[in-house]
Structure formats: C-alpha cells, structure tokens
C-alpha cells in the first residue's frame, strides 16, 4: 500500500511545522525520516495517521485520503507514537486484546494474532505482567506488538529505539527489517546510524521542508562532489611530499594527519587523484603504504543540510 503525501502543510499558530511537503513511499520500502528535533518529523507522521488534520494538502494511504476517509486510513496503519504511550495498569495480553478489538480483528482470529505478536515480539514471559512492571525495552516491544496486531499494511514508527540499550536496538532493528519486507514502513529518528542500518531510503527534513531524499549512497554522492583520500607514504619528508603532491593537477589541498607520513588529500570537484598520486609515488620511489578513499559520513551530510545558516 503506497503512501502519497501531497503539499502537506501544518501550522502551529504562525509557525509552519510542516511546510508544503510532498513525497511518495512505495510498498516494501522502509523510509527513514531524519531531522533535528522540531524539524517536523512527528507532525508529518501524525498527519499520516490522521491524528492531525492537515491545514493544506492531503495524505493518501492506499486509496483513502486522511481528509475524507480518516477511519479507513486508520484501519490500515499500525502506529507507534513518540514516547510510546501505553495503559500502564493493563496486563500485556489484555492490552493487546483491547487494541485488536478496536482494530476490528475478527473474533475467531484475535487469540491467534495475540499469540503471534507475543511470539514475534518476544513477550512470552511477560504476557501476564502489567505493563508498568516492564522495563523500557519490553514496553517498546509491547508498543510494536500493538502496532502490528491487526497486520497493517503500513507501519509508522516514531523514534522506535529511543531509550533502548544497544542489544535491544539491534533486536528492534532486525524486527523492523523483517516486518518491512512486505509492508510500507516509515520510521523517524535523529540517530543517523540507525536510519542507515534499517532504511532503504532516507528523507532529511529541516524546518518543515525536505532538504534531501534518496538512498544513503545517493545522499553521499550529492552532498559533496569532492573525493577525499587518506594516503600514507614512507621515505619522504613531510614538506617535500606536500609540495610535490600539490603540483598534481587534480589535487586541491593536502593536509598532514600525523608525523608518521599520513595525509588527507582533497581533489578538485568531480576529479579523482588516485592514479596521479600512485604515479607520483612510483616516479619518486616513495613507498605508498596506504591509499584509501574516505566516505563522507552521513553525519556530515546531515550537519551540512540542517545547519542554520
């Protein structure tokens, strides 16, 4: 089930929390929604789940519009809100039953679904405990279980791994990847590594506008056209190397990294210096012990795109 967001705008007073955003998410795609706090991630997700009515624009989930058929939209969405609110005084199994009934899971299937969710989310030992007795990690699993209980085609997860320990984060990520194969998933995060590890596609949003959209490789390519190489050379003085390397036509800048003969070489836009550096070393009889292209980190891209200038 595809999600189509068309010119979505949501204002809080005079401030535009989401400003004329449009994008499409296809079935089977896991979309990572990235941005600094207050960028409009949560507002966009709330609009998709038809909790917030858009001021302008529309969201289509399958064939239904949040403006016209919000009840139908809600049926096909599983939603894990930010901070994962739960009825703390309920037992896990009662809570899942309550949600399943509200979602209209038919009577003969309810028990099967509940057991399946308990199994998938690893809640077997906790199913009869009250939710307020559970640790944060288990609560997060309950939140995920309630979102999945009616086997929705669309999954909206608002910061699903906040507050979890590293092992739990890995588990939840694996779970999301597993589920995400057949469903349309949107998950938000401000942890870049998480989005990179889980998502097929990344949208970076800042001040209510989309500033980047693509796979993590695509984002890298677009953000900086400059190649950066890490080079270690033996048998040459630092100053001599820098002087010689800067003579190479494709090289823009050479920075020494340490006293051991490592340098960072930045090429001119859209050019590569790999071959010429190698040729230079051969010609001068220097021993080239390292030549590594450095990937731009997603952090840098994020920082570059969302810094307030």
């Amino acid at each position: 089930m595809d999600i189509v967001i068309r010119n979505l705008t949501k204002k809080y007073g005079a401030q535009r929390a989401v400003d004329d955003i449009s994008f499409t998410v296809k079935t089977g795609e896991i979309l990572g929604f990235l941005g600094p706090n207050g960028a409009g991630k949560t507002t966009t997700m709330k609009a998709i789940t038809s909790y917030l009515i858009p001021d302008e624009g529309d969201v289509l989930v399958g064939n239904y519009s949040v403006n016209k058929d919000s009840q139908e939209v809600k049926k096909s969405i599983g939603y894990l809100p930010e901070h994962n609110p739960l009825y703390l005084d309920m037992a896990v199994i009662d809570y899942l039953r309550f949600v399943a009934e509200l979602q209209g899971v038919s009577k003969d299937k309810i028990n099967g679904r509940i057991l399946e969710m308990i199994d998938v989310c690893g809640l077997e030992a906790e199913k009869h405990k009250k939710i307020n007795e559970l640790s944060k990690g288990y609560r997060q699993r309950v939140g995920l279980a309630q979102a999945l209980i009616h086997d929705p085609e669309v999954l909206i997860l608002d910061e699903p791994t906040t507050g979890l320990d590293p092992n739990q984060i890995v588990e939840i990520r694996e779970l999301i990847r597993k589920i995400g194969r057949e469903k349309t998933v949107i998950l938000s995060s401000h942890i870049l590594a998480e989005v990179e590890a889980t998502c097929d596609r990344i949208i970076i949003i800042n001040r209510g506008k989309i500033v980047a959209d693509g796979t993590s490789e695509e984002l890298r390519k677009h953000s900086q056209g400059k190649e950066i190489l890490r080079v270690t050379v033996e048998g040459v003085e630092r100053d001599a190397f820098i002087r010689e390397a800067q003579q190479v036509s494709t090289v823009e800048q050479v920075d020494p990294l340490d006293d051991e003969g490592s340098y960072e070489i930045q090429s001119r836009p859209d050019l590569s210096s790999r071959k010429s550096i190698f040729a230079l070393c051969c010609e001068k009889n220097w021993v080239l012990t390292e030549l590594t292209p450095i990937q731009t980190k997603l952090e840098d891209i994020f920082h570059e795109l969302t810094m307030d200038r």
Partner: peptide, 14 residues
C-alpha cells in the same frame, strides 16, 4: 497526561 489519547484516536475510533 500519559499520551494514550493519541494511541486511542489513531485507532479506527471516532
């Protein structure tokens, strides 16, 4: 207070 109202209103409930 607990935010469960959001949970409730994002289910197919008016």
């Amino acid at each position: 207070r607990s935010g469960t109202i959001e949970l409730l209103l994002t289910k197919p409930v008016e």
